[in-house]
Design a protein around this nucleic acid. Sequence first.
RNA 1: GGUCGAUUAGCUCAGCGGUAGAGCACUGCAUUGACAUUGCAGGGGUCACAAGUUCGAACCUUGUAUCGACCA
Length: 948
Amino acid sequence: MIEQRFDPQQYEQRIYQRWEDGGCFRPSGDTSAQPYAIMIPPPNVTGSLHMGHALNNTLQDILVRHARMQGKNVRWQPGMDHAGIATQMVVERQLSEAGNAGRRDLGREAFVSRVWEWKEKSGGNILNQLKRLGASCDWENERFTLDEGLSKAVGKVFVDLHGEGLIYRDKRLVNWDPHFQTALSNLEVENREVAGHFWHFKYPLENGETYQFPTDFDENGEATAWETRDYISIATTRPETMLGDGAVAVHPDDSRYAPIVGKRVLLPLADRYIPIITDPYPDPEFGSGAVKITGAHDFNDYQVAKRNNLPLYMLMDEAGRMVQSLDQDSRPIMPEKYVGLDRFEARKAVVADIDALGLMIKVEDKIIQQPFGDRSNVVVEPMLTDQWYVDAETLAKPAIDAVREGRTRFTPETWEKTYFNWMENIEPWCISRQLWWGHRIPAWYGPDGHVFVALDETAAQIAAHAHYGAPTEIVQDEDVLDTWFSSALWPFSTQGWPDQTPDLKAFYPGAVLVTAFDIIFFWVARMMMMGLKFMDGQVPFHDVYIHAIVRDETGKKMSKSEGNVIDPVDLIEGIDVETLIAKRTSGLRQPQKAPAIAKDTRKRFPNGFEAYGADALRFTLAAMATKGRDINLSVDRVAGYRNFGTKLWNATRFAQMNDAVFGAEIVPDTLTRPVNRWIVGEVGACGARIDEALGDYRFNDAAEAIYHFVWDVFCDWYLELLKAVLQGDDEAQKAETRKVLGWTLDQIFKMLHPFSPFITETLWEQTASRDGFLMQQSWPVDTPAPWKDPAATSDIDWVVRLVSEIRSVRSDVNVPAGARVPVRLIGASQDTAQRVADNAGLITRLARLDDISLAQVAPNGAVRFVVDEVTVALEVADLIDRDAEINRLDKQLGKLDSEGAGLEKRLGNDAFIAKAPAEVVREQRQRLEEVQAARVKLSQARAQLAEL
RNA sequence: GGUCGAUUAGCUCAGCGGUAGAGCACUGCAUUGACAUUGCAGGGGUCACAAGUUCGAACCUUGUAUCGACCA
C-alpha cells in the first residue's frame, strides 16, 4: 500500500537519476521508427533557471516524452551557449571584485583560460536546474557552442560564406558599446525612453548675413509676420556631437530657409564654416526644421552625409572619450580643450560654452529614445569602424520562401507576420565583436593588410605564400564572432556537421522548435538562413512553436528590480516567506525599493511557497500555455494542480485497498459491466483528445483533457459507480471490475506522464512489479478511433444525468443530506426501464435513495422533475418544504418558458428555416419539443402541489 | 510614426459563427475509511463601446476607447 500522500522531495531526484542511469533519455536508435528531434534553445552558460526557461523546457519535455511513448526515435538535443558578452562580463566582474588585474593586463590567453576555468566550475548551473524540472534531454550528447566540433562548423561556415561573398568586411556606422568596447548587432541594442533634453542652438550665418524668417501664418499657411535673423536655429539631444557637424540640412520644400540654402554658417566653438544644404531627411514640422548633420555619429545623419558627400569626423574613441580629428586641410576640427573628455563631460562643456556665447535659445525637457547596450546598460554610440558583416538580405530570401511555402510553419500563425516583417527589411548582420571569449574570426592579415580567410592558420599561410610569392608573416584578426553566429548553426552543428553523420541524417530537420517570441530574430530567423544555406535547402525544423512570456500574477514582467520574481526551484522545493523576501530584496539596483517589495511579498505570500514539486509546476505551465502572448502565473493554480496529484494518488490508494489488478491486459469486447465498458471508452476518448491537442500544440487543452478525465470522470463517477459493484456479491463482476480499475489507472499513469512524470512514475513502480520504467511504455491509445461502446456510454451518461438531477433537486428543496428517500419514474420507455433494472444499485447508492421503481402516477406530495422522457418523483412527503418546492418549480418553469420562447421565435422565422443548415433546424425543433414536454409535466406537478 | 496584439464571471484565463466555460475565490450542506490538498449543491457575465454583414455574432467587417508588445 502506498503511503498517505506523495512527497515530491522524496522521489523526484531519485527517479530522475534512475531514468538517467537507465539510459531512458537516449534516442531509441530504431531506424525504422519515425525520428523526432527537438533542439533545446541553448541557455547561456551563465544562466540560471527562470520561469521562462521552466515553461520553455516543460513544453519541450511534454512533446518529447509523448513522442517517445509513441515509439518515435527521439532526440532532445541539450547544450549551452558560450554567451560571449554575458560570460566575459561575469568573469571580468569577478576579477575586479577579487582585486585582480583587469583582462587587458592579464592578456588574452590568460584571460580566456580564466573564463574556461570559470565555465568548468560555475557554468551550466542551469542544466542541473533543468534536471530538477524533469527535462529528459539526451545528456550524453550535450554540446557547447565552443566545443571543438561546433567550432569546426563555425569555421567552415565562415570560410564558405566568405568565399561566396556573403561575408565581407566593411567600414560603416555600427552600434558601439563604450563599456565593453565592442560593436553590437542591431538586435543587441535596446531603445528605451528616458528623460532627456532638447537643446536649441543658434548657428550664426557667415559674415553677419541676415534673412527674413516667418513667425506667423494665416489659415492658408501664408506668412503674415516675419523677423530678421542672422542665424539658423538647430536643436539636438546630443550637443557634444555638434563639434563634428559637417553641414546643416533643411528640407528642399521648406520655403522658410530658401533664402539661405547654399550659404554657410559658423559652427560655434569649433570655429569652422559649414554649408546649409537641402536633403529630404529633415522634417519641416519637427523642431526648427533645420538639422545639424554629424555623419560619423548618427545613423540618419550618416545617410545624409553619404548622399551629400559631407565629411565624416570621428569624435570619440572606443571608450567614448572625445578625440581630435582633422579636416581635409589637416586642421583640427575642435578646440583642444574638449579632447580627452568623456562624452557626457563634453556635453556639459559644450552646453556651457554655447550658453556663454549667447547662442543658446532654449532647453526643453523631453522624453527621448536612447539606445542602450542590452548587456552593458550604457548608452550605445554610433561609430564608424571596420567590421565583418553577413549579407543577411541574400540569405533571408530562401528563409522567407520556406515559410511562405509552409515548409516551416509558425504556431500561432500570426508570428509569421513578425518573421516576414523583419526578414523583408533585414539589415546586414554585424558579426564581429571586439571581445576575447568566442570563436576567433578565421581571417589573417598580411603586412599590407591583405586578408586571408581560411579554416586554420596553416591554410592561411599557404594562401599568403601564394599571394606574396614568398613565406610572409600574417596576423590573425583579433575579433571574435557574435555568439548568435554559432547558435545559428545549432540544428546541424550539434549533429556532427560538416561530417555526414547518422545523427545528422536522422535528426535534421527537427520536428519543432519551441521558443519565446523574443528570440525570433536573434535565433529562429538565423537558424532558418543558415540551415537552408548549408543543409541543401532543407529547413532546420518543420514547426516553430512560439510560447508566451511568463509574467507575475498581475501581469507585470518578472524582474529582479521589481522584486516580483518567482523562482521555479522555489515552487518545486518550497521557501519560507523570510527567505523569499531576503532573496527578492538583495542585490537591488535601487535598494530603497526593498521595504515595499518586502511588504508586498509578505502580503501576497504570507506563508511563502509550499514544496509543490516539479509535477505541479509543470502541469500549471502546461495548463496555462495557451496560444496567447502572456501567461500570468498564479501560485494558487500551482497549489491547485498539486492537489490534482494528491487526488490521483488517493484514487490509487483506494484502488489498492480494493485489490485492483495492475499491469493486466484487458479485452474490451469481453467486458460485461456497462460501467467498465464505459470507462474503457472514456480512456480512449481522453487519449485521443490529448493526441489531437498536442499535435496542434494546444498544451492547455491536452492538460485540461487529462485533468478533467482523472478528476471529473474517473474519480467522481467511475470510482463511485464501481463501489456498488465491489461491495456486491457477484464475484465475476468484482473480478472484472478490479481488473478494469487497475487497467484504467495504468492508462492514466501513461497519459499523465508527459505532464507530470514524477508522480506517475512513482505510482507505476509502487502499484505492481513492472517491466521497465513508465516513461518507456508505449502510448496507450490508437487514434483516431479508439475502442468505444456507444450503448454503454449512453447508459452511464443517463445514470449520471439522473443522479445529478436528483442530487440537485434534493439540495434545492432542502432534503437532509443523510435522508434516504424513494423515487418513482413515471412514463419510462422500454430503454429507461431496462437501464433502471441494470443500474438500480448504482443509482440508489449515489443519489442516496432507499428505493427506485417505475410507476404509473406520481404520488401526492412528491417533488417532481423531468429527465428525458420520464417524470421523476422524489417521495419526500415528510421532508418537503412546500414553499421551497413551489419556488423551485416556478424557477424551472421560468427557464423553460424563456428557452421555449426563444426557440419558437427562431423556428417561426422563415429565413432561419430556409437558410440555416437542416441539422441545426432539426436540433432546435427537437429541443423545443423537449422543452414543451417538460413544461407540461412540471406544470402538472405544480398544480398538484398547489392543491395540497 | 509603423507593425502586431489584448479587452469574456471578483481574480487568472479558455472559447473564436448555432442561446457562455475552467481553475481559484465566494455561499449553503456534508466529517466512522481513497482523498478536507475532500465531497455534494449553488450564486455570479447586456463577452469594452458603436455601427455593419448574417436566418443567427463573444466569435466576421469597420470605427471608437483603453491597455500592451515589437520596430523606427
